[in-house]
Design a protein around this nucleic acid. Structure first.
Lengths: 341, 341
DNA sequence: TTGTATGCGTTATCAC
DNA sequence: GTGATAACGCATACAA
């Protein structure tokens, strides 16, 4: 099946018996071109069904007007919200967004990053995967001065703008809330510590305990346990221990859900006997019974901010001598899973 | 901020005192090149930090290895599942996926389609927006023999492969299930009838009733009521009527959720006194109490299928003389909201 | 097996 | 204002 060959600026030029450069200029609204010829050229282009070959233009100008985005999983509310935010700004600024998901797989993340680089994206917005420790595939971008913005899960060793939520304060708020509700022995189900967000959520947890004069007990802390399956295993292990907790702050809503489902099966009353707070405000957390108290992250706004920053850098409007970390506010949403009143 | 200029195949050629074409061939694993020189070239390329300029290659070969995807809203479970499916296949076949959302805005959809065309995507997968009636922006692709695959919301007047679910059968299954469970007066909360999917779900509902010898009562049917708010209004109105239903088939899970929350507040027991079935299998439907019986749409599989078809067409492996409409099966998932046993 | 020459469609740099 | 021409980096037909 042959593709019909496209009309080019040369075809238009030939038809109008003018030069291709004039056509090019006219189509790009170059002010050098007279009103009259520009109108004629645009009209003819339309008639001939001309579609610019952006690939050729990109090749020539070394600019693609494309932003690369890498997220661990597109099919998750927080990430798709961020993408929506990125897309909204990018679109209005004339950029195309190319989205890929790493599935939290390091090899895939590397592959995608290299592919985006080879495709000469003008900039990259990403949240790194759980397995990512070596970041040389990203240094590629910073070395070549291709703007890079991290959100949520950031790489500590790369100097770039970062959009995060205040995970420490988030963890602190969640834990303090549990303390105020009178829970005495508060556990934490967390993520992998190579990711700053999980380290910070843990730190917020620890700070809240310390401030309340409660000794932190390492037996109450589980790392790298954020899936449904791992969450279930973790809460089971915690509850089967000789001195089980009476509350848990989970670093995401998924593990909080696992906790709730497991405890309900074992007949423990939530929130009376056991308190649960999650993180992220996934849509399901509102409608589960009991509904899950959680920390809300402004995903859409984070995406917009990331996009604005990146495009600012691409267009050179931003003094990017100094990279900054933008800390977006979190909000504690108290629901049934931790509300004893 | 200057970007460092990239090393090209010419740089490698110069360094090794060979020709650029040899380098090009070696890097593309052309069997004409001897094992020895190929290894040398690849090694040198790596050392020199060579990154192929894919733009240039695409420009030359007229192939971008990129698939364009347009969805109404990325931030919705069904669509993001489809995208995941598309992405999985595309990635394994060496394609990049460029995703855009139309926000159900016709102008934006046109703009995106034109932009993807100008960017010379090798193919396009899309679900059209609610406002889309004129499809000339899509005919562009079919006219130029650029493969096009529709899913979910399809354009009737364009000859292309289409992936849809069997909404009629889905509505039929949901309603039949309620009948079998012994519910006697089954209502329907539906969507806007200008969308085929909602028309079909309603038709499936009507067929099931008819087949069971039940007269369809127009008072039991509400249209265009798929949000949380509208759903609540609708169930309230239905229950306040002189002859209220004892079950409802909702055209989405969101309205089913509204029904459940409203009825629980009014003290009606689900499923004993009232049965509810939704549609789409949104993540929350599994974890709500009572969990919502629903019709599962194989979003991920639909995406995979769309991707396979499209890539098959792109690679010319498929006889695409005949466009087909693939009707994917739906699955009734019986959960607590309708299970009296 | 390798080298030479050409062209993809556009934009940019000169001229006029 | 407009035209001629070169250049972007790569792949490929043709030569050797």
């Amino acid at each position: 099946m042959e593709r019909k060959s496209e009309t080019t600026i040369h075809d238009i030029a030939r038809k109008l018996k003018i030069s291709a450069s004039t056509v090019s200029r006219a189509l790009n609204d170059n002010p050098m071109i007279s009103e009259k010829t520009r109108k004629l050229i645009k009209k003819t282009a339309l008639e001939m069904g001309y579609r610019p070959n952006i690939i050729a233009a990109n090749f020539r100008t070394k600019r693609t007007n494309t932003i690369g985005v890498i997220v661990p999983l597109i099919n998750r509310h927080f990430f798709s919200s961020v993408i929506s935010g990125i897309e909204e700004i990018a679109y209005s600024e004339g950029f195309t967004v190319s989205i890929s998901q790493s599935n939290d797989n390091y090899q895939k993340e590397v592959h995608i990053a290299q592919s985006l680089f080879s495709n000469r994206v003008d900039g990259l917005i990403l949240s790194i995967g759980m397995e990512t420790i070596d970041t040389s595939h990203l240094k590629l971008f910073s070395e070549k001065n291709i703007p890079l913005v991290f959100f949520d899960r950031t790489a500590v060793d790369i100097d770039a703008n970062k959009i995060v939520v205040d995970d420490i304060k988030g963890g602190y708020k969640a834990t303090s809330h549990l303390i105020k509700q009178g829970y005495k022995r508060i556990a934490h189900i967390g993520g992998p510590l190579n990711l700053t967000i999980y380290k910070n959520r843990l730190e917020g947890y620890a700070r809240a305990l310390k401030e309340a004069g409660i000794n932190s007990d390492p037996n109450l802390i589980v790392h790298n346990s954020l899936t449904r399956e791992e969450g279930t295993k973790s809460i089971k292990k915690l509850m089967d221990s000789s001195f089980p907790p009476d509350a848990v702050f989970c670093a995401n809503d998924t593990s909080a859900l696992s906790v709730i489902i497991y405890l309900q099966k074992t007949g423990i009353n939530i929130p009376n006997d056991f308190g649960v707070v999650g993180f992220s405000n996934e849509p399901f957390s509102e409608v589960v019974t009991p509904s899950i108290s959680t920390i809300k992250q402004p995903g859409f706004e984070m995406g917009k901010k990331a996009s604005e920053l990146l495009i600012g850098q691409i267009n050179g409007n931003l003094k990017n001598s100094e990279s900054q970390t933008f800390i977006m506010p979190t909000e504690l949403i108290v629901r049934d899973s931790s509300n004893r009143n």
